[in-house]
């Protein structure tokens, strides 16, 4: 195996391990995004899920910096994530000029944030698109065909993980699951704020503190976040 093949194999082993052990869907999606960024030689990434309000919500991002999160939120208007979600197809553009034609406002903000290219692949569940995996790079240009394939494989794993947390009987279960996960996401944002303020941390550091505690104690991320917001748990300094 080449070094890259080994990295890919490692990533899939790690992801599969997470899927079978004590499973926490939000933590899993964060791990997946981090590995996707690494494997696709990207500089940032995230997962957006359909929220049944007709919009897309950021579920996991490789960094918690406000400007990055905004790049995802902006895609409720335009951008590769929205396009992948609507078309059900992988989305890429050959160069920044083509990006500007398709997504003028998004591309402007992307460039302000220091990135030069963006790609998205849909997360598909049978005939339904439930979200998209998005990566940003500082170098311009499209992903290679093999990287695009890898991105699709990672997006498929993300979809499977949504069904894994509970045995899913039908679409109704998916609706329950998605709304539950979306509320947990808000809870984690609140906990990041509480921790950031108490400990003088940046929100990204606050997230890592939450996740480290969740993993060490084998507690779901959302439960740790709830304990922090309700003042039952103090982390860090």
């Amino acid at each position: 195996m080449t070094a890259r093949e080994e990295l890919i194999a490692d990533a899939f082993v790690q992801l599969a391990d997470t899927l079978v052990a004590e499973f926490d869907v939000l933590d899993f999606l964060h791990v997946l995004v981090e590995r996707a960024v690494e494997l696709l030689d990207a500089d940032a990434g995230g997962i957006m899920l359909a929220d049944q309000r007709g919009g897309l919500e950021v579920m996991a991002a490789s960094s918690h910096e406000v400007h990055l999160v905004e790049l995802f939120e902006l895609q409720n208007e335009e951008g590769p994530c929205l396009e992948a979600f609507r078309s059900g197809l992988a989305v890429t553009r050959p160069d920044p000029a083509a990006m500007r034609v398709s997504w003028p406002a998004f591309t402007e903000r992307l460039e302000e944030a220091g990135f030069a290219s963006a790609q998205a692949v849909p997360m598909r569940l049978r005939d339904e698109v439930v979200g998209a995996l998005n990566v940003f790079r500082v170098t311009p240009g499209a992903l290679s065909d093999s990287d695009m394939k890898l991105a699709r494989a990672l997006a498929d794993i993300a979809t499977i993980s949504l069904l894994q947390e509970r045995s899913m009987r039908a679409r109704d279960r998916l609706a329950e699951q998605l709304q539950g996960a979306l509320n947990s996401r808000v809870l984690i944002e609140q906990a990041k704020g509480v921790l950031a303020e108490r400990g003088g941390l940046e929100v990204g550091q606050a997230f890592r503190a939450l996740r480290d505690h969740a993993r060490r104690s084998g507690t779901p991320l959302a439960e740790v976040a709830s304990a922090v917001v309700h003042g039952r748990l103090r982390l860090g300094r």
């Binding site: 950021v58 808000v186 944002e189 609140q190 921790l195 303020e197």
Partner: peptide
């Protein structure tokens, strides 16, 4: 509002004012 920044800020303000979120 469901944006991340609003809820991060709510968490910070809860500590600043010593109130619930």
């Amino acid at each position: 509002d469901r944006r991340a920044v609003v809820h991060q800020a709510a968490g910070m303000v809860a500590v600043q004012l010593d109130v619930d979120v």
